[in-house]
Nucleic acid binder design. Structure first.
Lengths: 360, 360
DNA sequence: TTGCTTTTATGAATTGTTTCAATCATTGGC
DNA sequence: GCCAATGATTGAAACAATTCATAAAAGCAA
């Protein structure tokens, strides 16, 4: 590969001039400028990103640290980040942590030696990102946290409005007549899981319903967890008529559990998910879910990073993306006997349709 | 960050010695060795990958070029590659091409300036990877192609046994009595789509059935394509009783089309997919599919790359991974009237008409 | 101790950029 | 035509590592 020295020789100018042409870093006479650019063309020259990074103390790579690209919510996030990064000349280094904070630490330490321009991270369980990020920031490298935040995070962040999304979804369940609600939450040390539960509880509280503790089950954000905890919920008396799941994977597991228990969704049990993954459309019945845009999460994070690189020294940004409620077939009014609470006698044939009133 | 010069100073040795200790590149007396390592520990020193890469003319980054991480088949491939790469000290740079060969070219050109240790690529439509790869190989950088191959590819590759997978799936459809088969293939300029169609045709040919050209529809590897082409197939007379889809996304689109046409799957039309994505389990009915391991595709590719880096100069490797048939509910014997072929008289009332009632 | 060989250690050169101080050229005012 | 001011160009240093020729040290035999 041709290097800058070659170009300088071909164009008959000095090294410095070539650099100035390439970076617009100083006035260069038009005639020389042209000669240099022609030489660049002729030789098919491309600057070495390594040498440039070494000299500048910063590369155009962005480290992206996520739990697991195989989890269906994350590809869109990565894609969003890559799109914005790519179109601005940055490249993404992808790292999976498997939610293991020691693996996260390894990645954080290793990435440093590449002098990345910035970091986008979805923190792992029990992440102690805060200290690491501080050291990155001291070196002038931005770190933005997305989806969920580590303890005491005070840096830039982009998250979904988990609380409100869960609140709206739960309120809808209440509006169509459910009184026996239950929730299967993700790991409550994760801020997103905690916020979603918070929204759920607020809606229940505002409706003046009592929520017995065993109607809230905590588990991992996956199918197995949803399956196991749903089986527990379905054995409770009174049996919940609607289950709010912490994410779509949990909901999927719950859906399987409902079938296994010989019940029907939504006739016996309504089910609400969170994330609105592609698969929510294709399950049987199609899953109602709180929709959030992973893609936007990614683009917003990359954008913040780029702004910082361009010199934005403002205070930490905390972007919160709005959610919307996607109603599909997994939610319906409760069975008749439960219409006005389980203690009332069942009235015949008076089951009203869903109240679609103020749903977005 | 501490650099090698600092370590040399702290340990009271020369730069060269530090390097030799760190790389085991020459005999160093045990006492010095220890002093150096202690200094490294004390200073928390980590070598700059940039400087090292610049000097060695090769970094420990692997470029991974794929069409779109958002396509549900690819995350597992990426994860497989990342796992093997990471545990051997390599990192992945992720690039999406959107199947656009000009974007692929941009990535190939850009990546060169990072001096990657190797490239793993899922070629885009009409990829002209061959020339580029040749230039990479001349520079000592391995390139392995996976999933599908560009025209005239003679380098290392890892693919699934698409032909046999499709053959076995089709043979199964024939065995349970289907005689009116149709296929919706992916873009036939892609080798994997072509091979799958090849397997399908071989099975039909061996069963001595005639396949009219309009029973094979070509489209893109996505839901929209599958939907549109399935609608065409379902209007043909005689209507196919089984459809072999080029991948699961096409199958998903076809499934929706079948419902829209007022038909039932599998009672009226059986459906077979390819890839066995996670979502195949959760559709209604659950999708039968030819299972291939994306994860293995990724690990195998990374392994080949690492072998090459360790000096393997052998001839090009063409790894072909076996597939397996995953039978679920979307496949059943054909309706009675078709049991012995379409030329037989239809018996009354045995063929369910387009009942619009219980469609979901 | 001397001389010879073998093993270790060193320092300078090298990789491809950017950047800064210094030099050179050009222009305009008088 | 001279001088100052401005603008363009240059070359060397720096970034942090590896590597190679060379020097120093060690080991050993006489």
């Amino acid at each position: 590969m041709a290097n800058m020295k070659d170009i300088a020789r071909i164009a008959g100018v000095s090294l410095g001039t070539v650099s100035h042409v390439l970076n617009n870093s100083a006035g260069v006479r038009e005639s020389m400028r042209k000669r240099v650019l022609e030489a660049v063309q002729a030789a098919g020259y491309q600057p070495s990103q390594l040498a440039r990074g070494l000299r500048r103390d910063k590369t155009n790579m962005i480290g992206m640290i996520i739990p697991d690209i195989t989890n269906p919510f994350f590809p869109a996030v990565v894609r969003g980040a890559e799109d914005v990064a790519f179109s601005n000349g940055y490249r993404l280094i992808l790292c999976n942590t498997d939610n293991d904070h020691s693996k996260e630490l390894v990645h954080l330490n290793e990435l440093r030696t590449y002098l990345p321009a910035g970091l986008i991270v979805i923190p792992s369980n029990f992440s102690d990102l805060t200290a690491q990020a501080e050291s990155y920031r001291r070196a002038g490298t931005g770190v933005v946290c997305i989806d969920r935040l580590p303890k005491n995070w005070s840096g830039d962040s982009v998250t979904a409005n988990n609380e409100e999304g869960a609140y709206n979804a739960t309120r809808y369940l209440l509006q169509i007549g459910h009184t026996e609600l239950a929730a299967i939450t993700g790991p409550l040390h994760l801020t997103n899981a905690k916020e979603r539960l918070g929204g759920f509880k607020r809606a229940v509280r505002e409706a003046k319903f009592h929520l017995a503790p065993e109607y809230v089950q905590e588990t991992t954000f996956d199918k197995q967890g949803g399956h196991a905890k749903a089986l527990i919920l379905l054995r409770l008396i009174p049996r919940p008529t609607a289950i709010f799941a912490g994410n779509d994977m949990i909901a999927l597991g719950a859906l399987i559990a409902i079938r296994e228990a010989g019940l029907r969704c939504p006739e016996d049990v309504s089910l609400m998910g969170f994330d609105d993954l592609d698969l929510a459309e294709t399950t049987n019945p199609a899953l109602s879910s709180v929709s959030q845009s992973g893609y936007q999460l990614g683009t917003a994070a990359a954008r913040i990073l780029l702004d910082r690189l361009e010199g934005d020294k403002g205070p930490a940004k905390h972007l919160v993306l709005e959610t919307s409620l996607k109603l599909r077939h997994s939610v319906a009014p409760p069975p008749d006997g439960f219409r006005l609470g389980p203690t009332l006698k069942r009235r015949r044939g008076t089951r009203p349709g869903p109240a679609k009133s103020d749903v977005r």
